[in-house]
């Protein structure tokens, strides 16, 4: 109490979590996948840094985006990468995407009673060469989807994606049908629009945008390889190809 007396015994406990803001997003194409995240890290109203990556390359054909409590996120990525390295040593090959997805679910559920406060989105190329997105909740529930947004601006971005990717509430012209998968340039435009919109209306989103694109082996990167400001990070030119696109977002 202000007068120094104790009306009640006080106990305040340590809170081992915080929220570091930001948003992530992934969209699967027929033979490619796009995984993106902004690069702002914040706590409360303070921007801690304008560049803290949330999207990580796991293998030649798998990318993981993590969002929520940054310390848990970084530790989780570290541990996933470690498990994938052990797998490589044991089996002399990279773990397939669907196996990584199950691994992530197991690792998250192992912490069921002290969870990683992290929303994960895994994107990449499946063994059959199709683009795939897996999304997880903090304790490991997961499913394969064509697109998913998560994080601070999930509620702003996901309905936009429903409309633009799944063509929800849109009727195709008579005798025509909506495409099941969009071409890469269309997907990239939607991703960039999503993040500029989220930046405009959400204070925890902004500063920079990092877009990973994984293209299945032998498939066309649809002009991406010649696009301005694109960095290729493929292990081999004849395997699956991986690119990073970096864009500025508003810093206010």
């Amino acid at each position: 109490m202000p007068d120094g007396s104790f009306a009640h015994s006080q106990q305040r406990s340590f809170n081992p979590y915080t929220d570091n803001g930001g948003t992530i997003l992934a969209i699967a194409g027929a033979d490619f996948t796009v995984i993106a995240g902004d690069t702002r890290q914040s706590e409360g109203y303070s921007i801690q840094t304008r560049y803290a990556p949330k999207v990580f390359r796991l293998t030649d054909r798998a990318v993981l985006a993590v969002n929520g409590f940054a310390a848990d996120g970084n530790m989780f990525v570290k541990k996933v990468k470690q498990r994938l390295e052990w797998y490589r040593h044991a089996h002399a090959k990279d773990m397939p995407l669907r196996a990584i997805a199950r691994l992530i679910q197991t690792m998250l559920y192992a912490q069921r009673f002290f969870p990683y406060y992290v929303y994960n989105i895994l994107g990449g190329i499946e063994e059959d060469g199709t683009g795939a997105v897996y999304s997880f909740d903090p304790v490991g529930s997961y499913e394969r989807e064509a697109c998913r947004a998560a994080g601070a601006a999930q509620s702003l971005v996901q309905p936009f994606l429903d409309n633009q990717i799944y063509f929800k509430n849109q009727t195709a012209a008579p005798g025509q049908s909506h495409p099941t998968h969009l071409p890469l340039p269309d997907v990239l435009a939607i991703v960039i629009d999503s993040f500029t919109s989220a930046t405009e209306r959400h204070i925890e989103v902004g500063d920079g945008l990092e877009i990973y694109v994984v293209v299945a082996k032998g498939r066309s990167p649809q002009g991406l390889d010649t696009m301005r400001g694109v960095q290729e990070m493929s292990a081999r030119p004849d395997g699956d190809r991986m690119f990073v696109i970096r864009r500025d977002l508003k810093k206010d």
Partner: peptide, 25 residues
């Protein structure tokens, strides 16, 4: 680089802890 009691980390060209995060940054 920065580290705190939660294990939160980041690096930036300028960093401040405590009141500095509001006044000096």
């Amino acid at each position: 680089g920065y580290v705190d009691l939660l294990g939160t980390t980041y690096s930036a060209p300028s960093i401040a802890t405590g009141y500095g995060a509001y006044i000096a940054i």
